[in-house]
């Protein structure tokens, strides 16, 4: 019984380092390879669209990984490599959308909503403060009424 349980746990929790990058793709220069991995993680696989090309086993992803490495080896900067791929496939290929006019609402929207919420809360509490002590429908005392109240209190103290 125990054996089967262990076997089950092994199957469930053991997984080989899920690496799509084939050994023959890896560059000899570790610094260059690290940059290639970094770029690959930000590029969308166009076949299985919610994976990066670093994660994907699709053949097009593999060819893109090799392309990224070849360009780095040829002396391209990280930005130049990414710009090349974007020029072919559009902003969609970036897993993190860039900040531009088309994505303005995407990036700024959440902050606007939070600010709107804060304003709403502030308004709500300010309104409540002025009316908190009064029963519904009651108006605050007028000047004359306040004076009369003070007089009455003074009279009572005497």
């Amino acid at each position: 019984m125990r054996f089967y349980l262990c076997a089950l746990l092994f199957v469930v929790f053991w997984s080989p380092a899920g690496l799509a990058v084939n050994p023959d793709e890896i560059l000899k220069d570790p610094a260059l390879e690290a940059r290639a991995r970094d770029i690959s993680k930000g590029l969308r696989c166009l076949v299985c669209q919610n994976q990066s090309i670093d994660d994907s086993d699709a053949s097009l992803a593999k060819d893109l990984r090799v392309l990224v490495r070849d360009r780095l080896r040829a002396g391209d900067s990280n930005e130049q490599v990414v710009t090349y791929v974007v020029s072919r496939y559009g902003d969609f290929v970036l897993l993190k959308p860039p900040f531009n006019s088309a994505t303005l609402i995407l990036w700024v929207g959440p902050f606007l909503l939070v600010i709107a919420g804060l304003i709403a809360i502030a308004l709500f509490f300010r309104k409540n403060q002025t009316t908190a002590a009064l029963p519904t429908g009651a108006k605050p005392l007028s000047k004359a009424e306040e004076k009369r109240l003070a007089d009455l209190l003074a009279e009572a103290e005497q």
Binding site: V47, L60, D63, L64, V66, L67
Partner: peptide, 13 residues
């Protein structure tokens, strides 16, 4: 065979 032209054309499938 290595998708060089295909990628240059922005081919996805």
């Amino acid at each position: 065979p290595k998708s060089r032209a295909a990628i240059a054309f922005g081919v996805t499938g």
